[in-house]
Simulated scan of single mutants.
Amino acid sequence: MLGVLALSMLVSACSQPGAAPSPSGAAEGGEAAAPGTGGSAIGFIFVGTKDDHGYNQAAYIGSEAVEQAFPDMKVLRSENVPETAEAERVMEQMIKNGAKIIFPTSYGHLEPSLNVAKRHPDVAFFHQGGLKTADNLGTYFGTIWEPNYLAGVTAAQMSKTGKLGFIVSVPIPQVLLNVNAFQLGAQSVNPDATTSVVFTGSWCDPGQQANAANSLIDAGADVLGQHQDCTKTVIETAERRGVMSVGYHTDASALAPEGWLTGSVWNWSDLFVDMTRTAIDGSFKGSIYDGKYRGMLKDDVVQLTDFGASVPEDVRTYVLEQKQAIIDGTLHPFAGPVKDQEGNVKIEEGAEPDAEELEATDYLVEGVIGSIPK
């Protein structure tokens, strides 16, 4: 209800001709307050709903941790905020309601956030998954491709056909990176394994997801993975059709008691609390959060879920050994050579690209079936 109320108030305010937000935060004498200090509220905007069994639910759980850690601060939340100028209006209203810290949690919220951040230098913005920063806007994400690699290892060992399916949204670097990690993990234990990818063109379209899942299963895929915001449809379709699934964003194993293998998920709670505390303390500038922060498997920001009941002990043991090797730094999922679908070397032999290099991914690796939409 808060998001709805905020939007309705904002529509009324913005209907006045010539109304425009002015820069805020200048203290007496013209000195701007440190980003994130002096507010009475913390704002979170979500592109979907808090119960999507996926991306938004993971972020919402993180917002609840912030609410518990800072009981004297009001937590403002707005769900189903589109990746348009509407996001600017929602954030402006949150700032009017006392927010000096805002978490825009969707990739497409970045440009609206940059616009609002420019107008409000005293507000600290923590944007999820972005590739640009500003003086008062940092981005954070995690190397979710690490557990996705492990999910691919698990999937290939459990698959009887060697045909895996992956349902994704749009071809941004992080999406392509997850497909590639899954395939490379599968290939590490079964060189003949393939991953067929379907782009739905949407972060959450259950109808498109069901069509994609059924088409992949009809083509022989016996394990489905995904990079979708809402994960329920793919997992339930796989379960209903008698094939296996790996989850994403949050642990949705309860949806698939027979076919669930494992999942790649976010653990935002401790991170969100630490980012909030950093801003409140006036330490945003110069912190690890005022640029591009990427948490890793070793930081517990990204996690591999528990295994499903059908995964045998030898597979569990092997996957966990691979997980420990990633944590120890003795295994890099994208260690070269890595080739694209046309056989071109994209990562040279012996090279171990860092997160920034990988987040520029614009190709699919060998063994992935399907084309990147233009």
Results as ranks from 00 to 15, higher is better:
residue 228 Q to S: 12
residue 69 A to T: 07
residue 110 L to W: 03
residue 159 S to M: 05
residue 262 T to W: 04
residue 332 H to G: 02
residue 60 Y to A: 07
residue 283 S to I: 02
residue 321 E to G: 10
residue 193 A to H: 04
residue 342 E to A: 15
residue 67 E to G: 15
residue 85 A to D: 15
residue 275 M to T: 00
residue 323 K to D: 00
residue 353 P to H: 00
residue 237 T to R: 10
residue 63 S to Y: 06
residue 374 K to H: 11
residue 87 A to N: 05
residue 368 V to Y: 02
residue 21 P to F: 05
residue 252 A to Q: 13
residue 164 L to Y: 03
residue 233 T to P: 10
residue 178 N to A: 06
residue 184 L to T: 00
residue 326 I to Q: 04
residue 237 T to M: 08
residue 58 A to L: 01
residue 295 G to V: 04
residue 92 E to V: 05
residue 266 W to Q: 01
residue 206 P to G: 01
residue 33 A to M: 13
residue 3 G to R: 14
residue 315 V to T: 10
residue 48 G to V: 07
residue 250 T to I: 11
residue 346 K to T: 07
residue 111 E to Y: 13
residue 265 V to I: 11
residue 87 A to R: 04
residue 246 V to A: 07
residue 29 G to I: 08
residue 168 V to E: 05
residue 2 L to S: 15
residue 330 T to S: 13
residue 205 D to F: 03
residue 119 R to E: 14
residue 373 P to R: 04
residue 318 Y to F: 14
residue 101 I to G: 02
residue 155 A to Q: 05
residue 157 Q to M: 14
residue 230 C to R: 06
residue 8 S to Q: 13
residue 87 A to C: 08
residue 106 S to D: 13
residue 347 I to A: 00
residue 252 A to Y: 10
residue 15 S to F: 04
residue 8 S to E: 12
residue 221 A to F: 11
residue 341 Q to F: 04
residue 308 G to K: 08
residue 124 A to E: 03
residue 85 A to Y: 13
residue 189 V to M: 07
residue 192 D to S: 12
residue 213 A to I: 08
residue 372 I to F: 01
residue 50 K to I: 15
residue 105 T to Y: 03
residue 174 Q to F: 15
residue 112 P to M: 02
residue 52 D to S: 10
residue 269 S to N: 06
residue 110 L to E: 08
residue 330 T to F: 02
residue 340 D to H: 09
residue 73 M to T: 12
residue 93 Q to N: 06
residue 319 V to P: 04
residue 99 A to V: 02
residue 85 A to R: 15
residue 239 E to F: 08
residue 122 D to H: 09
residue 119 R to M: 14
residue 341 Q to G: 08
